[in-house]
């Protein structure tokens, strides 16, 4: 047998500590529960698509330090996606073998990164929502969702703080950074209403205590975003006509391109294991 360097016991101990039980295991047989599955897909797809977007930054960030930060955000999100999708079925099958109509993420997360300002504004808007939601979800009647959300809430708390710090610096930085931040805000703000949309599927999951009601976190979300934008010396944009549809598979044009890249190998070599 070839002589690769051995795994040292201390590395194994760390790996053991961070390895969430079942993260990469084959999914257990799940009872068919469409509302639950649907909700898991929404949570999982949000995390997956935003994680994929952030990973595009790797090697191209404004400084080496920021490169490390962005990769951490992406890794947290892909980890959460793996867990949520793993509850909904075979996480890899779901990530790599569905087409746009079956993806359940919101429009905000599939938006192209744009410049660093847009990426950070998008992350502020989304992670503030995600953090408030995960906090509530840690009391979900579904123990799996509650567990993933409780773990994820700690990760996302950090995302929220980091994004807020950056938006404040960029908004109240130079003329150029301010203009870019306003532009990013304008780009992303169109997709805010979708975060608080409750359709029939979601209403059912909320009624059963599986899902958290996003309408209940909207006031806190608005005041939190308002405070960060205030510190960034930026006005909260006016609300526009809601752009909806992501939760039912009707997305922007961007998602198809993202999937074409992300799914290229498993689709080109359907029989292969990697």
């Amino acid at each position: 047998m070839p002589s690769l360097p051995p795994i040292r016991p201390e590395d194994e101990a760390v790996a053991e500590k961070v390895r969430l039980h079942g993260a990469f295991d084959a999914p257990a047989e799940l009872p068919h529960d469409p509302a639950r599955t649907e909700y898991l897909l929404r949570l999982g797809d949000d995390a997956l698509i935003l994680g994929q977007r952030l990973s595009e930054w790797c090697g191209h960030a404004p400084s080496v330090e920021v490169d490390l930060s962005l990769a951490n955000l992406s890794l947290d999100l892909i980890g959460q996606a793996t867990l949520f999708l793993g509850e909904a079925g075979d996480a890899d099958q779901l990530a790599f073998k569905r087409d746009v109509l079956d993806f359940r993420n919101c429009w905000l997360v599939e938006q192209p990164n744009g410049d660093f300002a847009r990426t950070m504004v998008r992350h502020l808007l989304f992670s503030t929502w995600q953090h408030l939601l995960y906090q509530r979800l840690s009391a979900s009647t579904d123990p799996a969702i509650a567990g993933i959300a409780a773990k994820g809430a700690k990760e996302i708390a950090y995302h929220r703080e980091l994004a807020a710090e950056w938006v404040v610096r960029l908004g109240d930085g130079t003329e150029e950074s301010r203009a870019r931040t306003l532009d990013g805000l304008g780009w992303c703000w169109r997709f805010v209403p979708e975060l608080f949309e409750v359709d029939e599927q979601l209403a059912d999951a909320i009624a059963r205590g599986i899902a958290a009601d996003p309408r209940e976190i909207e006031p806190e979300w608005r005041s939190s975003i308002g405070a960060v934008l205030g510190e960034a010396t930026l006005e909260v944009p006016a609300d526009t006509r809601p752009i909806l549809g992501g939760r039912r598979g009707h997305h922007s044009e961007h998602l198809g391109h993202l999937l074409a890249i992300m799914q290229y190998l498993p689709r080109t070599y359907p029989d292969a294991n990697w």
């Binding site: 997956l48 990973s55 090697g59 080496v64 996606a81 999708l85 890249i261 992300m262 190998l265 990697w274």
Partner: peptide, 24 residues
């Protein structure tokens, strides 16, 4: 980094991203 967005499984994507991050 050229292959992070095209890694063929979620596990491989996490591994590759963590590795390239280590390089940073």
């Amino acid at each position: 980094g050229n292959w992070i967005t095209r890694a063929p499984s979620l596990r491989r994507k996490q591994i590759l991203l963590a590795k390239v991050q280590d390089e940073a």
